[in-house]
Amino acid sequence: MDDVYYTYVLKSRDYDYFYKGHCKDLQKRLAQHNAGMTKSIKPFIPFDIVYFEEFKTLEEAIKREKYFKSSRGRKFLNKILDA
Rank of each mutant, 00 (worst) to 15 (best):
Y51V: 05
E53Q: 10
H22A: 14
F18V: 14
K11M: 02
K42A: 15
Y51F: 09
Y51S: 09
Y8N: 11
H22Y: 12
F44E: 04
K11G: 00
K20C: 13
D16M: 10
N34R: 04
V50L: 01
I41D: 02
Y17P: 02
Y51P: 08
L26A: 07
C23F: 07
Y19K: 06
D25S: 12
S70H: 03
A31V: 09
Y5T: 05
K24W: 10
E60N: 15
K24L: 05
T7M: 03
L30S: 03
H33I: 14
R64G: 05
A31G: 11
E65Q: 14
D25F: 12
Y51D: 11
V9H: 01
P43N: 13
Y17A: 08
S40Y: 11
Y5N: 02
S40P: 03
G36F: 13
E65S: 06
L10T: 08
I45N: 03
A35Q: 11
G36V: 15
A61Y: 00
Q32P: 07
A61I: 00
K20I: 15
R13Y: 10
V50T: 10
K66I: 12
A61P: 03
G21Y: 08
L30G: 10
A61D: 06
S71Y: 13
K28Q: 13
E53T: 12
N34L: 04
Y15K: 08
D14N: 15
H33K: 07
P46H: 00
I49T: 01
H22N: 14
E59Q: 13
Y19R: 11
A61H: 01
Y8P: 07
Y15P: 02
Q27I: 14
S71K: 15
A61L: 01
K28W: 13
K39E: 14
D16P: 01
L10M: 05
T38S: 10
S40W: 14
T57V: 05
Q27W: 12
H22W: 05
R29G: 11
K56L: 11
I62L: 01
S70G: 05
N34T: 08
E59A: 05
P43L: 08
K63I: 05
P46E: 02
M37S: 15
Y5F: 13
K28F: 03
K56N: 10
N34Y: 00
D48W: 05
G36T: 13
S71T: 14
K63W: 03
E60W: 08
Y19T: 01
F18W: 02
E54V: 09
A35E: 15
Y6K: 07
K42Y: 14
L30H: 08
T38I: 12
R64L: 12
L10A: 03
A35F: 04
F52N: 05
A31N: 11
E59S: 09
I49G: 00
V4H: 10
D48Y: 02
K66H: 06
T57Q: 01
I45R: 15
R29E: 10
F18A: 04
H22E: 14
S40A: 15
